[in-house]
Design a protein around this nucleic acid. Structure first.
Length: 462
RNA sequence: GGCGACGUAGCCAAGUGGUAAGGCAGAGGUCUGCAAAACCUUUAUCAUGGGUUCGAAUCCCAUCGUCGCCUCCA
């Protein structure tokens, strides 16, 4: 089976071919760290985590780099408001984001470069672009000359004339062309700045990604990812910079995730319609957010509301239902789950090979869940169930779901619960329904669910 | 205004030429003292209108609607 990936550059699904055998270099645009991250950022991170995990499952060695933009207007502004150094602002939110990544069960990247650590490389690259005629300086600013780059607009599918007609560009007389963008910005008072051949200043936003990708992953990479709000201008400009520098195709596959929506609009800091990752994780486990992402197509917008959250919770619960132990070890079931597990695996792989179709992949897993539960109902023992459960756990692991995590409740209470259940069994034997139902109801209030069956009573945490 | 994506059952969501995966919710049933859980059965002609085709949700055109980008943004 061959993996196909939708490439924004060609607007088609294409067979995945790597530059080097069995190795994938992958660069994902990380956040600008000027404020708390929201679940939209988490979505992006989760999408690329799933992609990375699946590539590794397919046997590729993945080298993933995700950057932090730690110098930018908004960070500087925030620093002014709080009257602290902008580095401190960046540091605070980078640290926080790192914690989020761990909480969200995101596999670590090989590198997390930051713009301010790469100033030397950035200056070198800007200088090279000037030398090649792709950039020019004007009063301490350096701009990219987009008309010099023939392919400008190839990623976002626009041509320069269309954009000029539509956009109301501020009159910036220093630019040769209104769409030219800043590679280097001359320092204003009270801004962080670095010495450069053009005087004190700081890098523009787009150049950092080009340079960090070049520096950490080389001139050409397999996959470049990010939110689809970055297609233009950010990624378009990255292509212009990188390809002007190297003369080679920058990234083979451009992969973009859709936006998280809240109340019918894109979740964003500037609009204020957001739910922070912190706020979400206070109420729900990380798997719920991941399930929300998996349940839909990564390229489509994802609605964030009570209903979709609940939906994800229930789907998660359903997957977990298959991991419950057998009712009996007597073995009244002759069959085997090996074949069903194999089938689920095939469905899963075919779906994932089709541009990471996680929704269809989950369908295969739900089928397996039903097979396992069916087998349990007709008396399969733990060993038989495990044939299916093993594959289920493996495949959910490939998409980063943790089915077994919830068992970390306080173990101290368990003997007492067992005792109550035992007492209740005696009550039921003597048909004292009122009292036995009270025990069941009260335990439920405390988060303990009792399930009676002909083979006895099992309990689990809610 | 320009560019792009999307519009499938009550909801979420696959499916891109041969008469609609899966999940949730709903209905009925099995099991149960009653529940819960699980299992079984059941629920759509694919925004609208044209066109191409033996045949379209799937291709083309138009209309309506939603969203994204065009300014910082995952």
């Amino acid at each position: 089976m061959t993996l196909e990936i939708y490439n924004t550059l060609t607007r088609k699904k294409e067979p995945f071919k790597t530059l080097k055998p069995n190795r994938v270099s992958m660069y994902v645009c990380g956040p600008t760290v000027y404020d708390k991250a929201h679940v939209g950022h988490a979505m992006s991170v989760l999408v690329f985590d799933v992609i990375r995990r699946y590539l590794e499952y397919k046997g590729y060695e993945v080298e993933l780099v995700m950057n932090y933009t730690d110098v930018d207007d908004k960070i500087i502004q925030r620093a002014l408001v709080e009257d602290v150094d902008s580095i401190q602002i960046a540091e605070r939110y980078i640290e926080e984001f790192n914690c989020h990544l761990e909480a969200l069960n995101v596999l670590p990247a090989a590198e997390y470069p930051r713009a301010t650590d790469e100033i030397k490389h950035i200056i070198k690259s800007v200088k090279a672009l000037v030398d090649k005629g792709y950039a020019y300086q004007a009063n301490g600013d350096v701009f990219y000359r987009i008309e010099k780059f023939d392919d400008y607009g190839k990623l976002s599918g626009r041509d320069i004339e269309d954009m000029e007609a539509g956009s109301r560009v501020d009159v910036d007389s220093k630019k040769e062309h209104p769409m030219d963008f800043a590679l280097w910005k001359a320092a204003k008072p009270n801004e962080p700045s670095w010495d450069s051949p053009w005087g004190k200043g700081r890098p523009g936003w787009h150049i950092e990604c080009s340079v960090m990708s070049l520096h950490h992953l080389g001139e050409q990479i397999d996959i470049h990812g990010g939110g689809n709000d970055l297609v233009f201008p950010h990624h378009e400009n990255e292509i212009a910079q990188s390809e002007a520098l190297t003369g080679k195709q920058f990234a083979s596959y451009w992969v973009h995730n859709g936006m998280m929506q809240l109340s019918g609009a894109k979740m964003s800091k500037s609009m204020g319609n957001l739910v922070t990752i912190d706020a979400f994780l206070e109420e729900y486990e990380a798997n719920v957010l991941r399930m929300m992402v998996l349940n839909s197509s990564y390229r489509s917008p994802l609605k964030f509301n009570e209903e979709t959250i609940e939906h994800a919770q229930k789907a998660l619960k359903r997957l977990r239902s298959a991991l419950k132990p057998a009712r009996s070890q007597e073995g009244g079931f002759e069959g085997s789950l090996v074949e069903e597990a194999e089938k689920a695996k095939e469905t899963f792989q075919e779906a994932m090979d089709d541009d990471f179709n996680t929704s269809a992949a989950l369908a295969g897993l739900f089928d397996l869940v039903r097979e396992i539960n069916q087998a349990r109902d007709v008396g399969a023992d733990d060993q038989t169930l495990a044939e299916g459960q093993r594959i289920l756990k493996k495949l959910t692991g490939v998409i980063g779901l943790e089915l077994e995590k919830e068992e970390i409740k306080s173990g101290d209470a368990e003997p007492f619960i067992d005792l109550l259940v035992e007492v209740r069994d005696k009550l039921r034997e003597s048909k004292q329904w009122e009292l036995s139902d009270k025990i069941r109801d009260d335990l439920e209030e405390l988060g303990v669910i009792l399930e009676d069956s002909p083979q006895g009573t099992q309990w689990h945490w809610e």
